[in-house]
Design a protein around this nucleic acid. Structure first.
Lengths: 189, 189
DNA sequence: TTAAGAGTTTACCTATCAGTACAAAGTGCG
DNA sequence: CGCACTTTGTACTGATAGGTAAACTCTTAA
């Protein structure tokens, strides 16, 4: 019965993976229970408000990861071009070259969009804003930087969709490389 | 009361819309029944194999639309640059500037991916191939054309994700315009 | 007039859904 | 050891899921 002193933080990655693979509605409590190794009793002990609270916690942890690993470097790095380069590398690893879905993007397309609309909007708005700031600091006008930032964030999301649909990680890598090559200081603008 | 001689073709657009809004798993039979105005009995009369057959039929109709409206013009038009331009226009209308989800892309990200994997892969493979052919005919090498085709198809899918997440159709339009402007014969490459 | 088939309604099936209740079994502290 | 508290297993709820079966109502045409 009660054995391990499970920590909420330990099961968040497992929860995230279930939601990524099955979506919000598709991730049934029995699937979640199976993936985390926790019974319903434990799950409702940690998340009294049920599935919605689980998803909220997962979104918060994803948000935190991107904030520290991607957004802050873009916003504050002394070398914005290098921060952008690092973002491409981090994104490729994080999304496993498109074999791992972006949960926030998926959620935005799905049925349950309205329930988490604010978190979804914030995630993308802050990503675009951080990238805009970095691009602007590589000698671009605010408008050009914003357009390019939208282009890149959309390109990453689309690369996930396309690479997954085709079952070809190399497509993801190629799309990202092409966008990276279009950056100032690289081949051509 | 059997009254209206309902045609399968008449309800396909309604079916497609339900699947677009709720996904495959999220589109329950009662939702489908409500959206189409047909009871379960009628639905199983037209689609004996149930939901899966409904989705298959919807995917086939989507496929047919893209084949005639997008792929064939790209492959056979005497003016490939104009066909590409027409594709951007058609896509903007079809996806309502990102307010209307791409069902095939959504399906590729979702749980039910495996069930329709072949149709999903074909849709995107043929889109990329058609666009590659058109780009190649605008004086590009095969490799450059294919890379750019992947870039554009991914960009369109990503623009849907981003514009929907932000709730801003203008983002969709801007991302597409930027890609259109990068075409040969336009501003700059 | 009537029989066949298309189209439809209704009732029902089993499985599973999210969520609840609660007692049993663990833990740390004294 | 004994007590308070945390964690977990199990059994349950009512609702809904996808799907089936059969009775019923039209239309058509011989």
């Amino acid at each position: 019965m009660a054995r391990t002193v499970t920590e909420k933080a330990d099961i968040l990655p497992l929860l995230a993976e279930v939601f990524r693979e099955h979506g919000y509605e598709g991730a049934s409590l029995s699937l979640i229970s199976q993936a985390t190794g926790l019974g319903k009793g434990s799950l409702y002990h940690f998340f009294p408000k049920g599935k919605e609270e689980m998803m909220t916690a997962v979104l918060a942890s994803i948000d935190h990861w991107f904030e520290t690993e991607i957004f802050q470097p873009l916003l504050t790095s002394a070398a914005p071009a290098a921060a952008i380069e690092a973002m491409f590398v981090a994104v490729r690893v994080y999304f496993a070259s498109g074999q791992r879905v972006c949960l926030v993007g998926l959620l935005g397309l799905s049925d349950s969009r309205d329930r988490f609309a604010e978190a979804i909007r914030d995630y993308f708005a802050r990503w675009v804003q951080a990238l805009t700031t970095a691009l602007q600091r590589t000698h671009q006008t605010e408008q050009a930087a914003r357009e390019q930032a939208e282009q890149i964030v959309a390109g990453i999301q689309g690369a996930i969709v396309l690479a997954r649909a085709l079952g070809r990680p190399d497509v993801f890598d190629r799309v990202l490389d092409e966008m990276k090559g279009r950056q100032p200081g690289k081949s051509g603008g």
